[in-house]
Design a protein around this nucleic acid. Structure first.
Lengths: 262, 262
DNA sequence: CGTTATTTTGATATGTGTCAAAGCGTGTGG
DNA sequence: CCACACGCTTTGACACATATCAAAATAACG
């Protein structure tokens, strides 16, 4: 009705092919000619704002959502009414896959900041996947990876102490930000301390205390929402991820601290 | 080489169509004519015994495995070498889906008793799913449901006390046994107390104490591996699953104990 | 039938939740 | 632009649930 609508239609054309995070999202491995078919069913919504819901628990599954920019949290409501956060989602990640089983969203998705998401009608995606082996494969891969990361989270929640949980959480975010071209050493937490505690199965106070402790150990600097990682290897040690990446010789036992400008 | 091989070949023909748990497994929703194609790629192995491995962490993904009878546990090895159990799997359940992402099994699958499993080459399954919409849909559904159940487990591990965890675990098993035609009230635990504790993020001793407590509260009877549930509604209350099924009025506050023959 | 593994029970230690309150940033209205 | 109020975060004190340590009881296995 207004000129702005025309703009929106134009924006729609600016889909997967031009999207900077293509290879983190569904299009990875999908041949160019099929990509256009995928673009055909995806629509890009207006930006959503902090606190906006993408979908709510109980909603019928209409679309999956891909985060384009910003961040989103998903949570289920336990039977006594409190929320359990099931994930924080960064650009390139697909939301709503847990709704395919019953055709109903089991959790709610809420935007943590001003974000942009792509809407992908599931019916269309499924039909297209049947005709496009690369897309089917990528869809299965994405779901499989989510199963894998859930398994890691279970280990964290089931076996690890509070410091290991928070350290693993920070390292996980660092890694995911890094893959998206952001700094691995410095990033903003878009979720509250409360959310972090909820996700990690810890009280808010414990999260806060651990942040303070890590800071006093020169592992990180905390300045409100801004986190700076100074000693990633040290964090790995706290997280219980011994020498996963670099060769772990004597170096694991040394390294007292790395001073950095305060 | 021996006559017994001939028997095995005959057994192979006795595939999905004749399988008693067809509608719990992959074939659900797959039309009859496509079912034969599915049967074509599935092979049924000899029984596996207690302690046998179906696959190990690090193995390349060759096949998915469907439990036909018996039970299997899957676990990842944490970086400091201890195992974290990620699931117990009953007949009709599909194992190895978490390997699709990287083409490598992230966890190990070990049979808890004498079991029988079907081997499903993933390549073939994927190719067939591309030609069979019903099969593709069922595969996506199975993976989605697993995501959903992981979310529930996260809530359990993150928020619930030890009694709620164990109660929820028993109810979950009861429900799954029930769906498979076994008793919902009485079943054998094929896993050790250690395994249960590992899975639920509890010490063995705590699991044992909770079993004793539930028994003294007349919620269950424990006789070694054999568990009998006497008061499912009571267990639901302990698990924090308030009035999910029946209406929960004043009864929730009353009911001091229900005596039963000891 | 003896040996070993598993399970149960008890005593104690400790990490983390809970309660309480202060500090700090953010946003709002005068 | 400043003052106030509100929410979020941090810090402290304490209590409690559960892990840990230790040992007995019981089942499993050769």
């Amino acid at each position: 009705m207004t000129p702005s609508n025309v703009m929106n239609i134009k924006n729609l054309k600016q889909a997967c092919k031009a999207c900077s995070l293509g290879d983190l999202c569904l299009p990875l491995g999908v041949p160019l000619e099929d990509l256009e078919l995928l673009e055909g069913i995806i629509s890009r919504k207006r930006p959503v704002h902090r606190g906006d819901l993408l979908y709510q628990a109980g909603d019928p599954l209409g679309c999956l959502y891909a985060v384009r920019c910003g961040s989103v949290k998903t949570f289920v409501l336990t039977d006594d009414g409190e929320e359990q956060i099931t994930g924080f989602h960064l650009p390139g990640e697909l939301l709503g896959l847990d709704a395919i089983g019953d055709g109903v969203h089991p959790c709610t998705a809420l935007s943590l900041e001003t974000s942009s998401v792509c809407e992908i009608p599931f019916d269309g995606l499924e039909a297209l996947a049947g005709r496009t082996p690369g897309l089917q494969h990528q869809l299965l891969r994405i779901m499989s990876r989510e199963l894998q990361s859930d398994e890691q989270l279970m280990t964290l929640l089931g076996k690890r102490a509070s410091d290991a949980r928070l350290a693993a959480f920070l390292l996980n975010l660092s890694d995911r930000f890094g893959r998206r071209g952001f700094s691995r050493h410095e990033f903003n937490l878009t979720m509250s301390r409360n959310d972090i505690g909820n996700y990690l199965g810890l009280a808010v106070e414990t999260v806060s205390r651990m942040f303070s402790r890590f800071q006093s150990q020169d592992l990180i600097t905390v300045r409100r929402k801004l986190i700076t990682l100074h000693d990633i290897e040290g964090l790995r040690r706290v997280a219980g991820l011994h020498g996963q990446q670099a060769q772990c010789t004597a170096a694991c036992e040394q390294r007292p601290e790395v001073s950095a400008g305060g």
